[in-house]
Design a protein around this nucleic acid. Structure first.
Lengths: 344, 344
DNA sequence: ATGAAAGCGCTAACAA
DNA sequence: TTGTTAGCGCTTTCAT
């Protein structure tokens, strides 16, 4: 049985309210009394019960963090950073994995809502309408998605894609393919939009492929699609897809970067291992920033959060970096002839 | 403002206790009343407040999960499985990252203790004494560590190591090195113990190296140590170390598996990419099993948890598998001469 | 600066 | 089967 506030009060010969104040408003209590209370509390191993406190204050000092798939190597650094930043502010964090299921995502927000001060949605998959509705019920901050009225932490993929296309153009590539991810993905739309614009600016042909599932299998599937185009350069939705593509291509005897240059997105650890050129996104910075925004948002909500108040918390854009490794090289001098699709 | 039990009661013309029962003991309430209550609750969007419920029942339907480092690719599959299994039993899970710091680990258990029904410690780093003390305060289940009196989910590394050594012996290797991990690691001790026994059984020389930090840098550091021994086969503490070793060796012009055969532990995704032979451990099964044990342990604790009651929950051993890939091959016919340590 | 009292939302005896 | 009552551990007026 953990000690309660009453045990401490009794052992101190003081009233419960004094003990309470010692922890929640220390400056309102006589320094001598305070230190006596603190000493007894320490000795009894007393810790204020968060559930009881939450019941009356409405604050839980807990945060929720929801991701589509924890095993996607993109997320752990973000989770780690978010968790560490939350701890800095004495908050614990519930982490939930939706298994890429939008319905689960929604349900998790609902069940978590009452036990947290706010929820962080990382690359959410649910439809915008649901997202907006939920944001009315609980403070929400999203990462990697822009939704009207919901504060967000976004990656500057536009300039990342521009740098990627420029890099390929500089290497002499005339035909470049964009291997698209899920149609609902905000990241996918940003990337594609920027790639189209950049290709136009540099006067090169962009071949839009996909959508492909954002996993290894997607990359494998994309390999044959790419080979049906005259593209000698490829920008893929993310590193996982790019790596699937890379392996598939090499297995088929296509040299990377000899015949095809490949660029991914995210700079996950695997990308370094296979020496993939990629657009690095600052996931840890995003995690920290998102927690800060969420905490600010929750605080604002507490002191009479008007809709205007919420909107006051501005979206945050994070810079991306093109990391050039060995999966990109000069365009082949001999024009490659589109090859027929091969099996396995 | 979310609806409370009183709102529902009023709207139903029924007492709060009836509403309460509808949710916590549905069979004790008249089917008609029940459905009426349910309908109104649904309409009002009522959800029982977990904090309030926890305050009186002592049950939170929350679990804690603590790992040393979320970004270590070994953990995410385990977290995912644990979280999913917990959800199956209507539990949410706090995930905390200790950043490899035992003090943080201990503090997290303490602060989490009051808000959860139990805590899962994955590969805990804290000293046994602390672990045992904490287990008195809150139901604990550990993964990858065996501590007296605390239920555990363990990997059968012993047979894994035996298979690994046998595999190398079968390939003709006479000298094998074990690249050790942290001295405090239970996994490390198990692996080493089994490797020693297996080497003895097969009549081959085992060179014990380390301890090395269980990361990429550790593998790099181990590379020169390995080259100072006549070993042509290596079993490394884990895949991360093995991959560091692999890259370092190849950079130094040592062929793997031509001159040195390499075996890792865990079968993380990267291991597949670099085609590393490794001892696969069923992390997802471990996550699920651990949650089940923890839930059982918490339930046992609730109905008069005697120490004997706790001990009744037996440790669970999970089988490992040797996954043979391309980092192991026949021992080189020409005896390799120990090379002097080189820089970089 | 401290005490008294009310109550957050809910469950759990006990009565009826 | 349902209502009544007390109270989980804490904070927060309002007095003193």
């Amino acid at each position: 049985m953990p000690a309660t506030i009453r045990d401490v009060a009794r052992a101190c010969g003081v009233h419960v309210s004094t003990v309470s104040r010692t922890f929640s408003a220390p400056n309102l209590v006589n320094p001598e009394t305070r230190s006596r209370v603190l000493a007894v509390a320490e000795q009894l191993g007393y810790r204020p019960n968060k559930a009881a406190r939450a019941l009356i204050t409405g604050r839980t000092t807990n945060l929720g963090l929801i991701v589509a798939d924890i095993t996607n190597p993109y997320f752990p650094p973000m989770i780690k950073a978010a968790q560490s930043q939350a701890r800095l502010h004495d908050h614990h964090v519930f982490v939930a994995d939706t298994d890429e299921n939008p319905a689960v995502e929604e349900e998790l927000v609902r069940t978590l809502a009452a036990q947290v001060d706010g929820i962080l949605l990382c690359s959410p998959r649910m439809v915008t309408r649901s997202l907006s509705a939920l944001a009315q019920e609980v403070p929400i901050v999203v990462v990697n998605r822009s939704v009207d009225g919901i504060p967000a932490v976004l990656m500057d993929l536009a300039s990342g894609a521009r740098n990627a296309i420029d890099h390929l153009a500089d290497l002499g590539h005339q035909h470049v393919a964009y291997v698209g991810g899920p149609a609902v993905s905000w990241t996918n739309r940003e990337l594609r939009r920027a790639a189209v614009a950049a290709a136009k600016a540099r006067g090169i042909r962009l071949h839009l492929l996909g959508p492909f599932p954002p996993n290894h299998a997607g990359g494998v599937a994309a390999a044959s699609a790419v080979r049906e185009t005259p593209a000698t350069g490829v920008l893929a939705f993310n590193d996982i897809v790019a790596i699937g593509l890379l392996e598939s291509l090499r297995e088929a005897g296509v040299s990377v970067p000899g015949q095809i240059s490949l660029i991914g997105v995210d700079d996950i650890p695997q990308a370094e291992i296979v020496r993939l050129t990629t657009i690095a996104t600052p996931t840890d910075t995003a995690g920290r920033a998102a927690v800060d925004m969420l905490l600010a948002r929750a605080a604002a909500g507490r002191r009479g959060g008007t809709p205007a108040d919420q909107a006051a918390i501005a979206d945050q854009w994070l810079p991306t970096t093109l990391v050039v490794r060995e999966s990109t090289g000069p365009a082949p001098s001999t024009k490659r002839v589109p090859t027929a699709r091969t099996g396995s």
